[in-house]
Design a protein around this nucleic acid. Structure first.
Lengths: 232, 232
DNA sequence: AAGAAAAAATTTGTATACAAGTATACATAA
DNA sequence: TTATGTATACTTGTATACAAATTTTTTCTT
């Protein structure tokens, strides 16, 4: 009755490698040889290659034909795009959420917020971010747009590596406060207030980019040599 | 000097299969055996598999373990999501475009519109849609957000198959008229008008969905059996 | 004739072999 | 010392072989 499904090697490799990349366990620009990974994950090159192909499609891995494969550098252009897409979509969603009433959704959101409070007490930032993620997804589900969150989530993955870099400098209590205010506005049906707070909230992530991209310049892709680079 | 680069087999397979799927040359739900494709494209299963893996990530192909691979059915949920994402992003972009001035961009857009007019004269709908695509991309580039168009474009691919189904019933002159009005509003710096026309324009695509999903029910995925399906 | 069981044929998932291009180390020459 | 050419070792791209699961066909029984 209980269908115990064996997870295929290719799928395992994909999930594990994606986890390692987004968690910065594998560093941007780091070389990742297929034979090494195959040995490391106890499988052949074929499923490893399948995983890398998928990750390459998401922009997290770069193939350099016959010269090695690397973890894709953090591309500020991709981060900027992710921020834009996230803002436009999530603001639209939060506005709709404020016009919706769903006790079930509100309950889940409140629970996620409680978990965030707990994670701050415990000093567990990783837990905070997973609860944060869940909360944002809840809003999408609340308005019947869970697939939109999937798109945000994929774009956001580039931003997530940056966020991981700024972990120690982030004031989690401030983010928690934002969340509480957003929930309050949504519950109160205050559309424009929900929107304003969310906009402010989403903007915070982008604040330290300049500092980070200087501090960890080896993690970032060099901006395109524009023709005007020499002029000054 | 001229770097003649050989396109790798995997890349060729990906482009060709994607083309066949989006053009409905390969029908939704149609079985596509890897060995057949390998023979058809004169390569081994490995690059075919790479292409199918990528397409699966984009939701255009479904693997059914050891039981065959099929062209993914058109999922109305994916179409609905694409429409939502496209509207939110493209409306934001057109508003910014109306506040921007770029003779270069305007020139390209006008050129794309001219090509649309030509394609209607020639009765070449495929050409119309490729020029349509180019025009929309131009607006994104105009405001420095070309990467956003890439995201729209990928989401839109599901919609494109639906659009292909409704080709003969579509009034291309009406779409062309929309385009001209949008361009005029953007040139005139009329933000809200540009937005309104664009919104109307994007809405037209969704009009015939019910009819199409009934007429070609074998191309669509059955909607999830929701728990409330019986109640009524 | 109908249904169930068994066998055969397909089909994908994974492992391995080989080919071809790339980077690196090293020797050589200026 | 520095630059250059060459040989060597790596690394990926593709082909092929094999295993395991599923589907289809066939056979047998009632």
């Amino acid at each position: 009755m209980t269908d115990v499904v064996e997870i295929p090697a290719g799928e395992r490799a994909y999930r594990e490698l994606r986890r390692r990349i987004v968690s910065l366990d594998l560093k941007p620009n780091q070389a990742i040889g297929e034979v090494f990974l195959a040995d490391d994950l106890s499988m052949s090159r074929t499923p490893i290659r399948e995983a890398l192909t998928r990750l390459s499609g998401e922009g997290l891995v770069d193939f350099r034909a016959r010269a090695g494969t690397i973890v894709a550098p953090i591309r500020l252009e991709a981060v900027r795009t992710a921020q834009y897409v996230r803002e436009k979509l999530e603001l639209a969603i939060i506005e709709e959420a404020a016009q919706t009433s769903s006790n079930r959704a509100i309950f889940n959101i409140r629970q996620a917020i409680e978990e965030q409070r707990f994670s701050i007490q415990e000093g567990d930032a990783a837990l905070f971010f997973s609860a944060d993620e869940r909360m944002h997804r809840c809003f999408s589900e609340m308005v019947g747009r869970s697939a939109v969150w999937t798109i945000i989530s994929e774009a956001k993955r580039h931003m997530d590596r940056l966020r991981r870099l700024s972990l120690q400098d982030t004031d989690l209590n401030q983010l928690l406060g934002d969340h509480e205010n957003i929930l309050a506005a949504v519950e109160g049906g205050n559309v424009s207030e929900a929107r304003d707070i969310m906009k402010l909230h989403l903007g915070r992530v982008m604040e330290d980019i300049d500092r980070l991209s200087t501090q960890h310049s080896d993690y970032f892709s060099q901006p395109e040599n524009s023709d005007t680079a020499i002029a000054q």
